[in-house]
Design a protein around this nucleic acid. Sequence first.
DNA 1: GGCGGGAAGAGAAAGCCTTG
DNA 2: CAAGGCTTTCTCTTCCCGCC
Length: 300
Amino acid sequence: MNIAEIDLNVLVVFDAMHQHLSVTRAGQALGLSQPAMSAALAKLRAQLGDPLFVRTGHGMRPTPRALQLVDPVKRILETVRADILLQPAFDPATAQRSFTVITPDIGELVFVPKILAYNQRHAPGVTIHSVAISSPGAGEALASGEADLAIGYFPDLAKPGFYQQRLFRNSFVCVVRADHPRIQDHPTLDQFLAESHAVVRPAGRTHLYERFLESQNIRRSVRAELAHFASLLTIITTSDLIATVPRDIAHVFAGLAPIRLVDPPLQPPAFHLKQHWHERVHADAANVWLRKLVRDLFHD
DNA sequence: GGCGGGAAGAGAAAGCCTTG
DNA sequence: CAAGGCTTTCTCTTCCCGCC
């Protein structure tokens, strides 16, 4: 007999019959009426060419052929339950897994160290591969599976097929070297514009503060234009330049070098940093674990 | 999208079998 | 022989699928 000719539901019927040894009770267990259960049993008998369960004075009793089938049927049903119906669990303590996370170089300074510190204690086999992909390409990378998660400011990913979760509210702050000769804690707009500025413009990313100044028709003297936030710290500590950066990165800088955080004279509307993922991995246990970790570590 | 055919299941009823 | 449980048959409903 060809497997395609068998309705595999009959295995469920067989198992229920073996458990209850009664057509009525087996039917109740499967949500079938007694006649429907009887019909299912008749179908099973026809397919296997054996009466399987026969009526005796002590209820329905299995035939030798039925007894022969008990273990194989249980194995098959258990395999279906465990390997097909149950979501595979993700155990961070034992998992050997690498996650690719899209985040700008700010993210590598702000997010990655905390994730790694957590993993070192609780998920020793989990590694993080950080990639800086610009906003338009991030969606493609998430959809193709090239990346698992994007963390940061990705307004292009607010579209069908993608999920997002807000992590924290961010704003801007100015940074200068600790012994800057002119800039005090609350510079006026004139004082701010009188200084020379260092600006970070990572390729392919939205520059919120730049756009804000343009919308206000404000021009400043830019002395250094950088592609990476990481280079900014050295430049600030060795010059009189002033830079306006997201507050989270400024706090990381303050822990690394003698700099001061200063309120900017103009503050654009606050923005939210989020994590984004593709619907393809929405139910994936490993991805769910990573998202929960990111939320627990960074949600304000 | 509407229609028709087939499959499956429910419910009712009648018949059969076994036990006490 | 009555009671309980299984089987069979019939009718009706629902759902799915293919066709136009």
